[in-house]
Simulated assay, not measured.
Amino acid sequence: MSTREELIEKTRGWFTGRLPEDLFEGAPEVTVDREEITVVGRIPEPTYAEGASEAEKAAAVEGRIKEFRERTREARMAVARDAEHKFRRKVSWGVRCGDQGRLYTHLSVPVMTRLKQPERALLDTLVDGGVARSRSEALAWCVRLVEKHAGDWVGDLRDAMRKVEEVRETGPDRDGGQADDGGHGDA
């Protein structure tokens, strides 16, 4: 059985080999979870006129991102079809251009959760205050806030979980259920 890290590495490798060579600058970032594979690649920045303002540069990058999306749609869809068949997950796309990043498509997956009244009240406060349009959106906002403010800690937790998975892979039950009886079988 493959570990999660092996699955991610195999998926990243498959995309690196399968994508048209000139699609992105360098290897893409590939993120995998239970439902989705997200592929984000870097595209070249447009050439700016000398003395271009920040607004002009931002508009040029936005135009480049839109142009790239339209021009590469068929190639990306062909790769996505192959990947969805192989990995049994939906494929989402995004790009980085200059200092901007944009996801073209990505899944919004419902996640069942049980919340007590004070937690629901907090979500309702966010909705009533106009921070979010729904409890679902408010919960997503909270998750993004945790990621922003506890990102290093979450990264450390993920690293620790990978280490636990590695230790499990080398555990004593990895011999297919065949117990070592020390040569004293039931003969």
Rank of each mutant, 00 (worst) to 15 (best):
S134V: 04
Y48S: 08
T72L: 04
H184Q: 09
A49L: 07
R69L: 07
G41P: 00
E9Q: 14
D186E: 09
P20L: 05
S2P: 15
D82A: 15
L107H: 04
V61E: 10
R18E: 15
Q100Y: 08
T47G: 07
K163F: 07
C97F: 02
I8M: 10
T125D: 14
M112T: 14
V143T: 13
D181E: 11
D124L: 06
E67K: 14
T113K: 14
K86A: 14
P46S: 02
H149S: 12
K148C: 02
V61M: 03
G41D: 06
R158L: 14
D99H: 05
F15W: 02
S2E: 12
R73E: 14
G177E: 03
A160I: 01
R64I: 05
E84D: 03
S136K: 14
G101E: 14
A160Q: 12
E74N: 08
R81A: 13
A49E: 09
G129M: 10
E67W: 03
T38I: 11
R88D: 02
M77R: 15
T47C: 05
D181T: 06
L122H: 11
P118E: 04
A150P: 05
S92M: 01
E56Q: 13
D22A: 15
E36G: 03
V95R: 01
I37M: 04
G155W: 03
R96G: 04
E54I: 06
E9I: 11
P172I: 03
E50R: 05
E84S: 13
E9N: 13
I65G: 02
R73S: 10
I37Q: 01
I65F: 02
D175N: 07
S134H: 08
M77L: 14
R76G: 02
P110Y: 04
R133Y: 04
V111Q: 15
D82L: 12
E9G: 06
R162K: 09
Q178S: 09
E147A: 13
A58R: 13
G98S: 05
R81L: 13
R18T: 15
K163S: 07
R64V: 08
W153R: 12
E54A: 12
D152R: 10
E67R: 13
